[in-house]
Write a protein that binds this DNA or RNA. Structure first.
Lengths: 340, 340
DNA sequence: GAGTGTACTACAATCGATTGCAGTCGCTGG
DNA sequence: CCAGCGACTGCAATCGATTGTAGTACACTC
């Protein structure tokens, strides 16, 4: 194919004007064109292998059929499934996905969003929200639909697809309680992120509700979702509270940090001290012992975010509700009956 | 901002014609415009917050400033860093990244590429090549630059950025040989993928070169890069060849499958039988024992692929060389001195 | 047979930028 | 005093589609 076939070629081939060809090719307007003509145009288009030029169409209709997505950290295996879900759901409606990454210490995270907007994406999916996020406010005034995914914010009211952290932590705490644990600690994630904050609050609520011993001394905040901070926090926690028999970590990596801390102190994970994680990331089932953890349906989360976005894009009265997907508990060797 | 500012607005504001404004705004043509006029236009553009409309520009210049990338499996943590590298390198030149996923059993994988081409991406990065890939041939005739990443093909000659599997397997074999291992087995990946084939060939070459015992009975092919196939293959291998003291796996997941098989047979990983992996994916360092594995610079790989693509896009005589990035060995507890 | 629908189809403007070509203006040299 | 040149700047076409409006042809009514 030397030269791309345009609408004009199709029209000439079918012996009609381009406008007629356009209408024949378009689902919405097909009905105004004579059936025989439609057939002729369709046949010609098919024979020439015509595909509309997205830029020309977009320029006229003011739509790019493209959605932008901002990821805080592509190296984190968490986001693969989310992106996969988004991409899949968008594809079903003919939309494509533009990916942008705000690395851990990006000099100007907002510029990433601006770039996407300058590209005239039809909608935005943000996985980067912080609880106190200033960009989001300025984005509200823009006329571009937004959906948050995985993390939400408190600054503004935006549609968000999240994991149900309250339920998830509940699964972990109930599981531990059923095993006889009474003194349970929490290695929290960064409280500046909604996930960190929510899981912390859920932990306090559930332990309280179940009549377990828990005050602020049961909790230690890690400053980042990584193994090392988890190690440091778990160590501090266990030193302060030697009576703890179980730890609920806000994240799998933190839980694995806790593994290390527990071993450092000469104890065995699962037997002496039980540990639960959160996310069920790849390979944690193969740890020694396998990590009991809360599984969040990340792919569904992405798909749901995409569907909500598409919905809000086509509607003049967007839904701004938060959806919380129900997690499951994957029970493995890292939790066991309380040592007597 | 109710209405977007266009070039016309800037031109009116600066008191010039749109064509002059366009030239003043464009690096290439700025020199033909009077310096004072340029300043006036620039100032106006800045004041109005002008950003060119990418569709209008693209329609005229026939460029979308967009690159498409096809991933075989977004759930695989391997691809995060590659995508990150690509996105980063593209961003430096003002290009954006359109992501498409061909899931494991996608009904029509080629349609994904076609969609990207219909979107008029300026270039393509494919992480999906199989050794015997028919689509690639048809793509060659198209006029769109392509770069392969991670996997290559034998069907056609295309630029590719790969890991140096020969060197990587060499690192593993040499390491084992230095520990005294003589009878080494190989759990190969799918030989239909270039990585599977190349690592297999490299294994044979290195063991031969070093005078180690190795024929086809030392090798067992797994039919997919996953833990379970690794388990099955390792088990068969060890049953057939009880004399083996070490296993070189073509991939970390296969290696973890081998862990299981070894334990099933009542032996200890590292002490009785050494195991090496490939990729150094997240968390394998935290396994028990930590997996000795070949670390491939995936982020660099992505960045390099993007750079090569941009280069080939701007040049009329594209480079079609294959680049192989040098891997490193991460030594951990899964390899040890041969048992005597 | 004039008038009025009906059912299509063609014309032409438009989206917002880029770019070849054609001025315009001032100044210099013959 | 005018041709001619240089340095800008403006005009208008163009990229490929969509869409409001106008026009044509035909049938049907009275």
């Amino acid at each position: 194919m030397g030269q791309r076939t345009t609408l004009k070629d199709v029209a000439r081939e079918a012996g009609v004007h381009t406008s007629t060809a356009s209408r024949a090719l378009n689902d919405m307007t097909r009905s105004v064109v004579n059936a025989a003509t439609v057939a002729r145009v369709l046949e010609a288009a098919d024979r020439l292998g015509y595909a509309p030029h997205p830029l020309a169409r977009g320029l006229r209709t003011n739509q790019t059929m493209t959605v932008g997505m901002v990821i805080p950290d592509l190296e984190n295996p968490l986001f693969g499934p989310i992106i996969g879900g988004v991409e899949h759901a968008l594809g079903e409606d003919g939309y494509s996905l533009l990916i942008a990454n705000t690395e851990r210490d990006h000099p100007d995270p907002d510029s990433v969003i601006r770039t996407l907007i300058e590209r005239r994406v039809d909608g935005l999916i943000l996985a980067t929200a912080t609880r106190d996020d200033a960009v989001l406010e300025s984005l509200m005034s823009g006329d571009i639909p937004i959906v948050l995914v995985n993390r939400s914010t408190e600054r503004v009211h935006l549609p968000a697809i999240l994991g149900d952290d309250y339920a998830g932590i509940g699964l972990a705490v109930e599981h531990l309680e059923a095993l006889g644990h009474v003194a349970i600690g929490h290695v929290a994630g960064p409280l500046s992120l909604s996930t960190g904050r929510n899981r912390h609050d859920a932990f306090m609520a559930w332990t309280g509700k179940m009549g377990l011993v828990a005050d602020s001394s049961n909790v230690e905040e890690a400053d980042w979702y990584q193994v090392d901070p988890g190690y440091v926090s778990a160590r501090q926690l266990l030193q302060r509270r030697p009576d703890l028999t179980a730890i609920v970590a806000a994240n799998d990596l933190l839980a694995l940090g806790a593994y290390k801390a527990i071993r450092d102190m000469g104890q065995r994970v699962g037997d002496d001290i039980s540990v639960t994680g959160y996310n069920d990331m790849p390979l944690v089932d193969l740890m020694e012992p396998g990590l009991t953890t809360v599984r969040v349906p990340y792919r569904e989360m992405g798909a749901e975010a995409a569907r909500r976005l598409l919905l809000n894009m086509s509607s003049s009265s967007p839904e701004v509700t938060e959806v919380r997907l129900t997690p499951k508990l994957a029970v493995r060797g890292s939790t066991g009956l309380v040592a007597t």
